[in-house]
Computed example of a mutant assay.
Amino acid sequence: MTNKFITSFIPWLIPIIIVIVWQVAVAVGVVSAQLLPAPFTILTSFYNLLVSGELFYHMSGSLARALIGLLIGGGIGFVLGVANGLSKFSYAFTDTTLQMIRNIPNLALVPLVIIWFGIDEGAKIFLVSIGVMFPIYINTLHGIKNIDPGFIEMGKMYGVKGWRLFKEILLPGALPSIFVGLRYSLGVMWMTLIVAETIASTRGVGYLAMTAQQFMQSDIIIITILLYAFFGKIADMLSRWGEKRALRWHKSYVNN
């Protein structure tokens, strides 16, 4: 029990030390409270935002955009990864184009996206979708292409074909790589969302940060940064939980 507690506590040791040093540095005047408010001040501001309902309003907007963008972009990336992993024609036809688009920075697309979608939710969701699509695409493609051909041949010998072959051999074999892509895409999702929410938003954590910048509210800006870090950590934890559940059969996850 003690070892389990220590193992659970160790990951939080560095953040706790940073917060303590931060509070002391501001309290003794080493760091200006105007430039970097003390953790207690930030906590007070967080409580005020929470009680007023403003925090939930902006968080729910950001989470909705992130989830919709992940579902759309992740779904397209997965389908393209499977198609290009299974079909040489599909790979030859689409992969070069996809790789060219992948290397275009999201910021470079913003002016064009505004022309296409205006400043409504469509522009923000499009940017998130395009950001998360490629990590899932590349890792799904990698997972499908690196399945041992012997497993596929063995399955065919036992009469496993079509959908059963995909469900019982191809998909399980590609899942470790797909989950790597998912975890990476979750990080890209939050970074892209920050950019997306600078497009004439009236709701979202990014909008909250921009408004705080205009009024020089350092405590609110830090709260938004911490929120993105919190979102990213929760998303990664959920992804790892799903990975362990889906890969219980894999030898690397037996004792995890």
Rank of each mutant, 00 (worst) to 15 (best):
I223H: 08
I223D: 04
I223L: 14
I223W: 03
I223F: 09
I223E: 03
I223Y: 10
T224H: 11
T224G: 10
T224I: 01
T224R: 10
I225E: 06
I225W: 03
L226C: 13
L226S: 10
L226M: 14
L226P: 08
L226A: 14
L227T: 13
L227G: 03
L227V: 07
L227Q: 01
L227C: 11
Y228T: 04
Y228A: 09
Y228D: 04
Y228Q: 03
A229W: 01
A229R: 03
A229L: 11
F230G: 08
F230I: 10
F230V: 13
F230D: 01
F230R: 04
F231P: 03
F231W: 01
F231G: 02
F231Y: 05
F231I: 05
G232Q: 02
G232N: 01
G232D: 00
G232K: 00
G232I: 01
K233E: 03
K233P: 01
K233A: 12
K233L: 13
K233M: 07
I234W: 01
I234D: 05
I234Y: 07
A235I: 02
A235D: 09
A235L: 15
A235N: 10
D236K: 07
D236H: 11
D236G: 04
M237K: 11
M237R: 14
M237V: 08
M237A: 14
M237H: 08
M237P: 04
M237I: 13
L238V: 12
L238G: 08
L238F: 13
S239W: 03
S239P: 09
S239E: 02
S239H: 06
S239G: 15
R240N: 01
R240D: 00
R240P: 00
R240E: 01
W241N: 03
W241P: 00
W241I: 08
G242C: 07
G242L: 05
E243L: 07
E243N: 06
E243A: 05
E243D: 02
K244T: 02
K244F: 02
K244A: 08
R245Y: 04
R245T: 06
R245H: 11
R245D: 04
R245S: 06
R245G: 04
A246F: 10
A246T: 12
L247K: 14
L247C: 14
L247F: 11
L247W: 11
L247V: 06
R248C: 05
R248T: 09
R248W: 13
R248S: 13
R248P: 00
R248D: 05
W249G: 08
W249D: 05
H250G: 08
H250N: 15
H250F: 10
K251Y: 15
K251W: 12
S252C: 10
S252H: 12
S252Q: 13
S252M: 13
S252E: 15
S252A: 15
Y253N: 12
Y253I: 02
Y253L: 09
